[in-house]
Design a protein around this nucleic acid. Structure first.
Length: 284
DNA sequence: CCTGAAACCTGTCTGC
DNA sequence: TGCAGACAGGTTTCAG
Protein backbone atom coordinates (compact mmCIF):
# COMPACT_ATOMS: atom_id res chain seq x y z
CA UNK A 1 0.00 0.00 0.00
CA UNK A 2 2.25 2.79 1.12
CA UNK A 3 5.20 4.32 -0.64
CA UNK A 4 7.69 6.81 0.76
CA UNK A 5 5.25 9.71 1.33
CA UNK A 6 2.65 7.54 3.05
CA UNK A 7 5.30 5.95 5.29
CA UNK A 8 6.73 9.39 6.08
CA UNK A 9 3.24 10.58 7.05
CA UNK A 10 2.84 7.65 9.44
CA UNK A 11 6.30 8.17 10.93
CA UNK A 12 5.54 11.83 11.62
CA UNK A 13 2.24 10.89 13.27
CA UNK A 14 4.02 8.39 15.52
CA UNK A 15 6.62 10.98 16.43
CA UNK A 16 4.62 14.20 16.69
CA UNK A 17 1.03 12.96 16.83
CA UNK A 18 -1.45 12.80 13.97
CA UNK A 19 -4.93 14.20 13.41
CA UNK A 20 -6.35 12.05 16.17
CA UNK A 21 -3.50 9.79 17.14
CA UNK A 22 -1.21 10.54 20.05
CA UNK A 23 2.55 10.17 19.55
CA UNK A 24 4.36 7.15 20.98
CA UNK A 25 7.72 8.84 21.36
CA UNK A 26 9.18 8.47 24.87
CA UNK A 27 6.58 5.81 25.70
CA UNK A 28 7.74 2.68 27.56
CA UNK A 29 6.65 -0.76 26.35
CA UNK A 30 4.90 -3.17 28.68
CA UNK A 31 4.47 -5.97 26.17
CA UNK A 32 3.48 -7.12 22.72
CA UNK A 33 1.21 -9.63 21.05
CA UNK A 34 1.61 -11.54 17.79
CA UNK A 35 -1.76 -12.23 16.16
CA UNK A 36 -0.46 -13.56 12.83
CA UNK A 37 2.78 -15.45 13.26
CA UNK A 38 4.25 -14.76 9.82
CA UNK A 39 3.98 -11.00 10.32
CA UNK A 40 6.91 -11.15 12.75
CA UNK A 41 10.03 -12.03 10.77
CA UNK A 42 12.27 -11.83 13.86
CA UNK A 43 12.53 -12.90 16.66
CA UNK A 44 10.35 -16.02 17.13
CA UNK A 45 6.92 -14.98 18.40
CA UNK A 46 7.49 -16.58 21.78
CA UNK A 47 10.38 -14.21 22.51
CA UNK A 48 8.78 -11.02 21.20
CA UNK A 49 6.88 -9.63 24.19
CA UNK A 50 9.54 -10.33 26.77
CA UNK A 51 12.27 -8.76 24.68
CA UNK A 52 10.20 -5.59 24.13
CA UNK A 53 9.11 -5.08 27.69
CA UNK A 54 10.80 -2.21 29.47
CA UNK A 55 12.22 -0.63 26.33
CA UNK A 56 11.46 3.01 25.55
CA UNK A 57 10.69 4.55 22.15
CA UNK A 58 13.64 6.93 21.74
CA UNK A 59 12.83 8.02 18.17
CA UNK A 60 10.75 7.10 15.13
CA UNK A 61 12.41 7.35 11.72
CA UNK A 62 12.02 6.17 8.14
CA UNK A 63 14.40 4.40 5.74
CA UNK A 64 12.92 3.83 2.29
CA UNK A 65 9.52 2.30 2.96
CA UNK A 66 10.53 0.97 6.39
CA UNK A 67 9.22 2.46 9.63
CA UNK A 68 11.87 2.34 12.34
CA UNK A 69 10.95 2.47 16.03
CA UNK A 70 14.26 3.12 17.69
CA UNK A 71 14.03 1.55 21.14
CA UNK A 72 16.42 1.71 24.08
CA UNK A 73 18.23 -1.47 23.09
CA UNK A 74 16.65 -2.78 19.90
CA UNK A 75 15.07 -1.46 16.71
CA UNK A 76 11.59 -2.49 15.59
CA UNK A 77 11.43 -2.25 11.80
CA UNK A 78 8.05 -2.42 10.08
CA UNK A 79 7.37 -2.75 6.34
CA UNK A 80 3.70 -2.25 5.45
CA UNK A 81 3.95 -3.84 1.97
CA UNK A 82 0.60 -3.65 0.14
CA UNK A 83 -2.13 -3.25 2.72
CA UNK A 84 -0.46 -2.55 6.07
CA UNK A 85 -1.38 0.37 8.29
CA UNK A 86 -0.53 1.60 11.78
CA UNK A 87 -3.14 2.52 14.36
CA UNK A 88 -2.58 4.02 17.80
CA UNK A 89 -5.40 3.97 20.31
CA UNK A 90 -5.95 3.70 24.04
CA UNK A 91 -6.63 0.19 25.21
CA UNK A 92 -4.93 -2.29 27.49
CA UNK A 93 -4.69 -5.96 26.75
CA UNK A 94 -7.32 -6.76 29.37
CA UNK A 95 -9.81 -4.43 27.61
CA UNK A 96 -9.69 -6.66 24.52
CA UNK A 97 -12.03 -9.12 26.22
CA UNK A 98 -14.86 -6.58 26.17
CA UNK A 99 -13.78 -4.69 23.08
CA UNK A 100 -12.81 -7.05 20.26
CA UNK A 101 -9.94 -5.92 18.06
CA UNK A 102 -10.65 -4.50 14.61
CA UNK A 103 -10.39 -7.01 11.79
CA UNK A 104 -6.92 -7.71 10.43
CA UNK A 105 -4.83 -6.57 13.40
CA UNK A 106 -1.62 -8.64 13.14
CA UNK A 107 0.76 -7.26 15.77
CA UNK A 108 0.15 -5.24 18.94
CA UNK A 109 2.37 -3.18 21.22
CA UNK A 110 1.28 -2.01 24.67
CA UNK A 111 2.65 1.02 26.51
CA UNK A 112 2.83 2.01 30.16
CA UNK A 113 0.58 5.04 29.60
CA UNK A 114 -2.26 2.91 28.22
CA UNK A 115 -1.57 3.45 24.53
CA UNK A 116 -1.77 0.53 22.14
CA UNK A 117 -0.07 0.44 18.73
CA UNK A 118 -1.54 -1.96 16.17
CA UNK A 119 -0.13 -3.15 12.86
CA UNK A 120 -3.28 -3.77 10.83
CA UNK A 121 -2.81 -5.58 7.53
CA UNK A 122 -5.60 -7.07 5.46
CA UNK A 123 -3.43 -9.05 3.07
CA UNK A 124 -0.89 -10.33 5.60
CA UNK A 125 2.10 -9.20 3.52
CA UNK A 126 3.47 -6.75 6.08
CA UNK A 127 6.54 -7.74 8.09
CA UNK A 128 8.18 -6.63 11.34
CA UNK A 129 11.69 -7.26 12.64
CA UNK A 130 12.87 -6.68 16.18
CA UNK A 131 16.64 -6.60 15.87
CA UNK A 132 19.70 -5.34 17.66
CA UNK A 133 21.29 -4.06 14.45
CA UNK A 134 18.90 -2.56 11.86
CA UNK A 135 21.56 -2.87 9.15
CA UNK A 136 20.80 -6.58 9.04
CA UNK A 137 17.50 -5.66 7.37
CA UNK A 138 18.28 -2.31 5.73
CA UNK A 139 21.76 -2.77 4.29
CA UNK A 140 20.66 -3.60 0.75
CA UNK A 141 18.65 -0.40 0.29
CA UNK A 142 19.71 2.23 -2.22
CA UNK A 143 19.99 5.94 -1.41
CA UNK A 144 17.19 8.12 -0.02
CA UNK A 145 15.75 10.20 -2.87
CA UNK A 146 15.06 13.20 -0.59
CA UNK A 147 18.47 13.15 1.08
CA UNK A 148 20.39 16.39 0.50
CA UNK A 149 23.28 14.32 -0.80
CA UNK A 150 21.10 12.85 -3.52
CA UNK A 151 21.80 15.12 -6.50
CA UNK A 152 20.93 14.80 -10.17
CA UNK A 153 24.52 13.67 -10.67
CA UNK A 154 24.01 10.85 -8.17
CA UNK A 155 20.87 9.83 -10.01
CA UNK A 156 22.78 9.90 -13.27
CA UNK A 157 25.38 7.58 -11.80
CA UNK A 158 22.68 5.11 -10.77
CA UNK A 159 21.24 5.13 -14.29
CA UNK A 160 24.45 4.90 -16.30
CA UNK A 161 25.12 1.60 -18.02
CA UNK A 162 21.71 0.27 -16.98
CA UNK A 163 19.62 -1.12 -19.81
CA UNK A 164 16.44 -2.37 -18.15
CA UNK A 165 13.33 -0.21 -18.37
CA UNK A 166 13.54 2.98 -16.32
CA UNK A 167 10.36 2.22 -14.36
CA UNK A 168 11.64 -1.15 -13.25
CA UNK A 169 14.94 0.42 -12.20
CA UNK A 170 13.35 3.26 -10.20
CA UNK A 171 11.17 0.78 -8.33
CA UNK A 172 14.14 -1.42 -7.44
CA UNK A 173 14.71 -0.68 -3.76
CA UNK A 174 18.37 -1.67 -3.97
CA UNK A 175 18.85 1.11 -6.54
CA UNK A 176 16.71 3.84 -4.95
CA UNK A 177 14.74 3.47 -1.70
CA UNK A 178 11.12 4.53 -1.48
CA UNK A 179 9.62 4.82 -4.96
CA UNK A 180 6.61 2.60 -5.65
CA UNK A 181 4.10 2.15 -8.44
CA UNK A 182 2.17 5.40 -8.02
CA UNK A 183 5.02 7.84 -7.52
CA UNK A 184 7.10 6.24 -10.27
CA UNK A 185 4.31 6.64 -12.82
CA UNK A 186 3.73 10.21 -11.63
CA UNK A 187 7.43 11.15 -11.75
CA UNK A 188 7.96 9.69 -15.22
CA UNK A 189 5.00 11.63 -16.57
CA UNK A 190 6.25 14.86 -15.00
CA UNK A 191 9.68 14.23 -16.52
CA UNK A 192 8.11 13.26 -19.87
CA UNK A 193 9.95 9.94 -19.94
CA UNK A 194 8.41 6.68 -21.17
CA UNK A 195 8.41 3.90 -18.52
CA UNK A 196 10.33 1.58 -20.85
CA UNK A 197 12.99 4.15 -21.78
CA UNK A 198 16.54 2.84 -21.38
CA UNK A 199 18.30 4.54 -18.47
CA UNK A 200 21.68 4.48 -20.24
CA UNK A 201 20.25 6.41 -23.16
CA UNK A 202 18.75 9.30 -21.21
CA UNK A 203 20.32 12.69 -21.86
CA UNK A 204 21.74 14.91 -19.13
CA UNK A 205 18.61 17.06 -19.51
CA UNK A 206 16.37 13.99 -19.13
CA UNK A 207 18.15 13.02 -15.92
CA UNK A 208 17.86 16.55 -14.56
CA UNK A 209 14.14 16.53 -15.32
CA UNK A 210 13.72 13.12 -13.74
CA UNK A 211 15.56 14.17 -10.59
CA UNK A 212 13.36 17.25 -10.29
CA UNK A 213 10.23 15.18 -10.96
CA UNK A 214 11.13 12.67 -8.24
CA UNK A 215 11.73 15.48 -5.74
CA UNK A 216 8.48 17.13 -6.77
CA UNK A 217 6.12 14.16 -6.55
CA UNK A 218 7.57 12.85 -3.28
CA UNK A 219 7.48 16.25 -1.61
CA UNK A 220 3.98 16.99 -2.80
CA UNK A 221 2.88 13.54 -1.64
CA UNK A 222 4.28 14.28 1.83
CA UNK A 223 2.76 17.77 1.86
CA UNK A 224 -0.65 16.22 1.18
CA UNK A 225 -0.12 13.50 3.83
CA UNK A 226 0.14 10.79 1.20
CA UNK A 227 -2.54 9.27 -0.99
CA UNK A 228 -5.63 7.39 0.17
CA UNK A 229 -6.86 4.85 -2.35
CA UNK A 230 -8.79 1.59 -2.41
CA UNK A 231 -10.70 0.98 0.82
CA UNK A 232 -7.99 2.41 3.04
CA UNK A 233 -8.33 6.03 4.06
CA UNK A 234 -5.91 7.60 6.46
CA UNK A 235 -6.37 11.28 5.80
CA UNK A 236 -4.07 11.96 2.86
CA UNK A 237 -5.45 13.52 -0.30
CA UNK A 238 -2.68 13.24 -2.90
CA UNK A 239 -4.98 10.90 -4.83
CA UNK A 240 -6.90 14.00 -5.93
CA UNK A 241 -3.82 15.31 -7.71
CA UNK A 242 -2.70 12.28 -9.71
CA UNK A 243 -1.64 13.16 -13.23
CA UNK A 244 -1.69 9.64 -14.68
CA UNK A 245 -2.07 6.97 -11.97
CA UNK A 246 -5.55 5.44 -12.07
CA UNK A 247 -6.57 7.85 -14.84
CA UNK A 248 -6.51 5.60 -17.92
CA UNK A 249 -8.96 6.85 -20.55
CA UNK A 250 -8.98 10.33 -19.04
CA UNK A 251 -7.21 13.31 -20.61
CA UNK A 252 -3.57 14.06 -19.89
CA UNK A 253 -3.44 17.25 -17.80
CA UNK A 254 -0.70 18.59 -20.07
CA UNK A 255 -1.84 17.83 -23.62
CA UNK A 256 -5.31 16.25 -23.42
CA UNK A 257 -4.31 12.94 -25.00
CA UNK A 258 -6.07 10.03 -23.29
CA UNK A 259 -3.94 8.30 -20.65
CA UNK A 260 -2.89 4.75 -21.56
CA UNK A 261 -2.62 1.82 -19.16
CA UNK A 262 -0.44 -1.21 -19.78
CA UNK A 263 1.35 -3.79 -17.67
CA UNK A 264 5.09 -3.47 -17.12
CA UNK A 265 6.87 -5.84 -14.76
CA UNK A 266 3.51 -7.19 -13.57
CA UNK A 267 2.45 -3.71 -12.44
CA UNK A 268 -0.27 -1.52 -13.89
CA UNK A 269 1.50 1.35 -15.66
CA UNK A 270 -0.11 4.65 -16.60
CA UNK A 271 1.35 7.20 -19.00
CA UNK A 272 0.59 9.72 -21.72
CA UNK A 273 1.52 8.40 -25.18
CA UNK A 274 2.08 11.95 -26.43
CA UNK A 275 4.08 13.46 -23.57
CA UNK A 276 5.99 10.20 -23.01
CA UNK A 277 6.72 8.85 -26.49
CA UNK A 278 7.99 5.25 -26.63
CA UNK A 279 11.73 4.75 -27.04
CA UNK A 280 13.08 3.36 -30.34
CA UNK A 281 11.93 -0.19 -30.93
CA UNK A 282 9.29 -0.12 -28.24
CA UNK A 283 5.56 0.01 -28.71
CA UNK A 284 2.83 1.47 -26.59
C1' DC B 1 23.40 -9.71 -15.67
C1' DC B 2 18.36 -9.53 -16.94
C1' DT B 3 13.18 -10.72 -17.49
C1' DG B 4 9.00 -13.02 -16.42
C1' DA B 5 6.05 -15.62 -13.65
C1' DA B 6 4.54 -17.32 -9.41
C1' DA B 7 3.89 -17.02 -4.58
C1' DC B 8 2.40 -14.76 -0.45
C1' DC B 9 -3.02 -12.98 1.11
C1' DT B 10 -7.81 -10.71 1.38
C1' DG B 11 -11.16 -7.81 -0.47
C1' DT B 12 -13.48 -5.16 -4.14
C1' DC B 13 -15.14 -4.39 -8.48
C1' DT B 14 -16.59 -5.71 -13.28
C1' DG B 15 -18.80 -8.28 -16.60
C1' DC B 16 -21.51 -12.11 -18.06
C1' DT C 1 -28.29 -12.47 -7.48
C1' DG C 2 -24.38 -15.35 -8.44
C1' DC C 3 -20.01 -16.29 -9.81
C1' DA C 4 -15.54 -16.22 -12.23
C1' DG C 5 -11.79 -13.37 -13.10
C1' DA C 6 -9.05 -9.33 -12.82
C1' DC C 7 -6.88 -6.33 -9.99
C1' DA C 8 -4.80 -3.82 -5.82
C1' DG C 9 0.32 1.49 -2.86
C1' DG C 10 5.26 -4.71 -2.43
C1' DT C 11 8.86 -8.05 -2.12
C1' DT C 12 10.99 -12.63 -2.59
C1' DT C 13 12.09 -16.62 -5.03
C1' DC C 14 12.82 -19.40 -8.82
C1' DA C 15 13.11 -20.68 -13.82
C1' DG C 16 15.10 -19.54 -18.13
Amino acid sequence: MPELPEVETIVRALKFGGRQEPPVIDCVLTGGKVLWVKTLANPPAALFSQRLTGQKVMDVTRRGKFISLNLSDDTLLIHLRMSGDIRVDSARAEDEVDHPLPRHDRLLLYFENGLRLALNDTRKFARAWLVRDPAVVLSTLGPEPLDHEFSAERLGALLSKRQRGIKSLLMDQTVLAGMGNIYTDEALHLARIHPLARPDQLTTADIEHLWLAIQSVLKEGIRRNGASIDWVYRGGDFQNYFRVYGRSGQPCPVCGTLITKTVIGQRGTHYCPTCQPPPPGKRG
